[in-house]
């Protein structure tokens, strides 16, 4: 039976000839055209491919698509398409990205962290984000960004950009 995925709230039937062991990452990118989720290592080492599976952060590069069928998948495109999620807003406010390549994964990890810990301290942030590499070294702004997102989610006033 052909597989179907539930991505960003839409049901997506997959082509019949799709190898069910294909990592979710490549199905998102090449089959569904959702290229916001990034390839960095293909081995679960860099976090660039992080998506949410039923709200949990997952490395989509090591997750066979068959194992993702039946779960609610959220990609960076679906986090909030208007960019209004507190993490997205904080990222823009603080100008977190440099090259930006890691940031989809960073944002998905950060959003998952805040969903279960609304006000993480430095240690909790470092622990939750340790799987996401940033080659450009934006870690300090990411720490700040998560705190800012936490404040925004708690109803904090938006800073003027």
């Amino acid at each position: 039976m052909p597989l179907a995925l539930n991505v960003n709230g839409a049901v997506c039937p997959l082509p019949e000839d799709l190898d069910p062991s294909t990592p979710l990452l490549w199905v998102l990118r090449d089959t569904l055209g959702l290229v916001g989720t990034k390839y960095g290592c293909g081995q679960g080492l860099c976090g660039a491919c992080t998506v949410h599976l039923n709200g949990q952060p997952m490395r989509s590069c090591v997750l066979p698509v068959a194992a993702a069928a039946g779960s609610r998948i959220t990609t960076i495109e679906g986090l909030d398409p208007a960019g209004a999620h507190p993490v997205q807003k904080a990222w823009c406010e603080l100008d977190v990205p440099q090259c930006g390549y890691c940031q989809a994964g960073q944002i998905m990890s950060a959003a998952a962290l805040l969903a279960k810990n609304a006000a993480p301290d430095d240690a909790a942030i470092d622990a939750a984000m340790a799987g996401n590499l940033c080659r450009c070294g934006t870690y300090l702004r990411i720490r700040e960004g998560i705190k800012r997102a936490s404040a925004l989610a708690a109803g904090g006033k938006e800073a003027v950009s």
Binding site: G36, P81, A82, W91, P97, Q103, S161
Partner: peptide, 17 residues
Amino acid sequence: GGVDNPSIVTGRPLFGI
């Protein structure tokens, strides 16, 4: 802020890949 930030945080296609 970087002009591409809104695209980066929403996963728009930008990069070579």
